[in-house]
Design a protein around this nucleic acid. Structure first.
Length: 471
RNA sequence: GGCGACGUACCCAAGUGGUUAAGGGGGAGGUCUGCAAAACCUCUAUUCAGCGGUUCGAAUCCGCUCGUCGCCUCCA
């Protein structure tokens, strides 16, 4: 089965045929570390993670590069405002980003290149653009890409360069240039701004150039997939294509993937809109990171997605349903022969799941396949038709699907805190002694502390509730 | 003003020409259970924003209308 993806540039769904057989190279636009990434940012990172995980699940080797932009206007302003160096500010928010990414179970990219560590690559790229006449210098030491030299400009965003509503916005820090639509690949030095002394002069990188330089350094002049939020199509990715292809003469990216915005309160989540939610804040409120991940990946990446209390509650409930099935299977014991119909049911689920994701990461039918399987397994548990080994086989398949989704319970179920474990043991003892009063009291006490107790034919079991209230 | 996406049940969301319109959440009833929780069963869209059209047949194709969101500017 071939993975098919909808390419923004061609507007068509195309089979993923990697440039190197069996090895997919993916570049994702990552965070600009001027502050903590919000969950809208993470939606795009997690959609890329889902893609990478699925490709690996399908057996491909994947090299995933996600840039960290650690030099730009906002970082400079933020550092100045906070009275710290840009390095300190960038380091602080990079750490926070990595911690959030771990909490949300984002796979770790092979490379997390930082712009300030790639000044040489950026300079080399700008030199080529200057040599080929695609870029020019201005009096202040800045260097601009000349859009007029690149007829294909606008092909990604489907914008006619002549139709751009230029001049509607006047940037306070705009530099003189030949054409207002030209964009800076290198910004001349300014007082109070960091700058590098290089072969192309003093200054710092423009916003778009670093992605071209880092992508080509780590993945080559032409690679398979480039991802980002829909808002990066223009101008960021349009500019990346122009400057990269103008420099190399090769196709920069085979397939462009863009995810739609996360909405909150009827508008896209954006710092400038003031409607942002931060991973750390949500986790501090006791929200399950797995539920948050589920809420962010459960809708197709090209559909806009609203984040609400309701959507999070629905995600939490879905996760708990999944957890309950894992727990019931783990505790399941039945001394009988294997269920001959189980293997086919497991295979059907796995096939449907994979086929759905192959189809442009169509996650809804993939989740439907997962939950269809959960229902089927619950039925078998109730009917006691599986053997103990069957239950293990079922868990293995759930775990296999979870290599892609990463929403399942932790492999090594975190051991219960000693005091809680004591309560759980006491409750089991009370119930065994048919001391219902004590047993109910202990169950209530555990519930208040976030531990759900369930009795089953396979004995008492416990799990942590999806939303643990610390209030 | 230009470009684009979308409108499916109470909510989220698959389905893009042809059997009973997936799945999750929520709600109602039932089974099981010491009670509960979980689970299971039944029910919760003769209908897919509205109106026309094409077709033997449309949620799926075409046109118009209404509505929502986004890009054209920093932005995931």
């Amino acid at each position: 089965m071939t993975v098919r993806l909808l390419d923004t540039l061609s507007g068509r769904q195309r089979d993923l045929v990697p440039l190197e057989d069996g090895h997919v190279r993916v570049y994702s636009c990552g965070p600009t570390v001027y502050g903590p990434a919000h969950i809208g940012n993470f939606r795009s990172f997690l959609f890329a993670d889902l893609l990478v995980r699925h490709l690996r699940w399908r057996g491909s080797r994947v090299t995933w590069v996600m840039n960290v932009t650690d030099i730009d206007d906002k970082i400079i302003r933020g550092a100045a405002a906070a009275g710290v160096s840009i390095e300190a500010l960038a380091d602080r928010w990079t750490e926070r980003f990595l911690a959030d990414a771990v909490a949300l179970r984002m796979s770790e990219p092979e490379v997390l290149p930082r712009a300030t560590r790639h000044i040489e690559e950026i300079v080399a790229l700008v030199e080529i653009l200057l040599d080929k006449g695609h870029a020019y210098r201005t009096d202040d030491g800045s260097i601009f890409f000349r859009i007029a030299s690149w007829p294909a400009y606008g092909k990604l965003a489907r914008l006619d360069p002549d139709q751009l509503r230029v001049g509607e916005r006047v940037e306070a820090d705009e530099y003189a240039k030949d054409d207002v639509r030209d964009f800076a690949v290198w910004k001349g030095p300014k007082p109070g701004e960091p700058s590098w002394s290089t072969r192309i002069g003093e200054g710092r990188p423009g916003w778009h150039i670093e992605c071209s330089a880092m992508a080509m350094k780590h993945l080559g002049p032409s690679f398979d997939i480039h991802t980002g939020g829909i808002d990066l199509i223009f101008p960021h990715h349009e500019d990346e294509i122009a400057q990269s292809e103008a420099a190399t003469g090769q196709e920069f990216v085979r397939t462009w993937l863009h995810c739609a915005h996360l909405q909150m309160g009827g508008a896209k989540m954006a710092r400038s809109e003031g409607n942002i939610a931060l991973v750390g804040d949500l986790l501090d409120r006791g929200i399950s990171a797995r539920a948050l991940r589920y809420a962010l990946i459960a809708a197709h990446y090209r559909a806009s997605l609203s984040y609400t209390d309701e959507s999070l509650a629905a995600a939490t409930a879905a996760i708990e349903r999944l957890d309950a099935a894992y727990l019931a299977l783990a505790g399941y014991h039945e001394d009988r022969t294997d269920d001959p119909t189980l293997p086919a049911a497991l295979e059907t689920a796995r096939t449907a799941f994979g086929a759905a994701l192959d189809d442009d990461l169509n996650i809804s039918p993939a989740l439907a396949a997962l939950f269809d399987l959960v229902r089927d397994l619950n039925r078998r548990i109730d009917a006691r038709t599986m053997s103990t080994a069957d239950a293990d086989r079922a868990v293995a398949v759930l775990r296999d699907l979870d290599r892609v989704l990463a929403i399942g319970p932790d492999l090594e179920a975190a051991a219960l805190e000693p005091d809680l474990q004591a309560l759980v043991d006491a409750r089991a003892a009370a119930r065994a002694a048919r001391d219902w009063a004590a047993s109910d009291r202990l169950r209530d006490e555990l519930a208040e502390r976030g531990i759900v107790i369930e009795d089953s034919r396979d004995g008492q079991r416990w799990r942590r509730s999806g939303v643990t209230s610390h209030a």
